[in-house]
Design a protein around this nucleic acid. Structure first.
Lengths: 142, 142
DNA sequence: GTTTATATCAAGAACTATTCTAATAAAGGG
DNA sequence: CCCTTTATTAGAATAGTTCTTGATATAAAC
């Protein structure tokens, strides 16, 4: 599969990173549960089925390492528990207020579409957050 | 000013809400510090200058109430402390990775612009998050 | 291969931002 | 004003996450 850790492009991202058994398990679990956008503790629960001695701290460490390496991304809404997503394509996330599910939303292919996001039919947005991190003009110079 | 609590449109939003002294102070402080996008504790520090006996819990309560009423919005990036913003126009937020400042970013007026966000010249995006909350098709029906 | 350096792991303590609890106080309607 | 409702306060509690320590494992240097 394209997003496998053994994929050459992914290997490049993970350059200099030790692919330990724990990291592999954590990454595989995030892939397996991708559709749920699992939290750290969901990943922990599932990872223990494969590696019973793995600790929650290690799961947190692995998730952080994989995120920094760019293999997965951290997904948040307000201050709810972080969720993790192995989809590296540019996309947004929709959080259902009722059933607590989270799903990926792709950009609309048609540039002239009225709605930039390709939401499933029948979903209704109540709130939208757009945040960017980077360097401001002042900090860019120094 | 247009965003004042005494503005008729704002009054409508706050319908049914008791405008207590504390809520007024908290709202005024958020307005005053708007450019900084203050955290709850920044609001608390400033609010105490005006009302020395106000408690942190009250600041949190007021911020929550004002947010629910639609008078301010809660702004987050990952799980950093929430920040609050009295700008009710649709806009995004830019978090500087170096100086920790946060600023408003408006939508580009020109529909055909290459970049949908009107970023200040010289700023550089490293990461972008788009999240929506609402009802998914399944939950819409039930 | 042995030694030395570096990175990772596990367990639990510590931390931060936030929410909850229970008692007191303040608003607003009659 | 009085009464009911709602808000405030201070401090305790909580959730999610990060940190610390010592033990292991891996890699690098010799």
């Amino acid at each position: 599969m394209a997003d496998s850790l053994t994929d050459p492009k992914m290997a490049e991202k993970l350059d200099g990173l030790r692919m330990t058994k724990q990291r592999k398990v954590v990454y595989d679990v995030v892939q397996e549960l991708a559709i749920d956008h699992p939290t750290a503790s969901s990943v922990y629960t599932k990872a223990k089925e494969i590696m019973p001695n793995i600790s929650l701290a290690t799961v947190y460490n692995c998730l952080e390492t994989l995120t920094e390496a760019g293999a997965i991304t951290q997904v948040n809404l307000h201050r709810e528990a972080s969720r993790f997503c192995p989809n590296l394509q540019p996309h947004a996330h929709f959080f259902c207020a009722k059933c607590d599910s989270v799903f990926d939303v792709n950009l609309n292919e048609q540039a002239d579409a009225s709605e930039p996001w390709n939401l499933p039919d029948g979903s209704k947005i109540q709130e939208m957050n757009v945040a960017m991190r980077g360097l401001c003009p002042n900090c860019q110079d120094s």
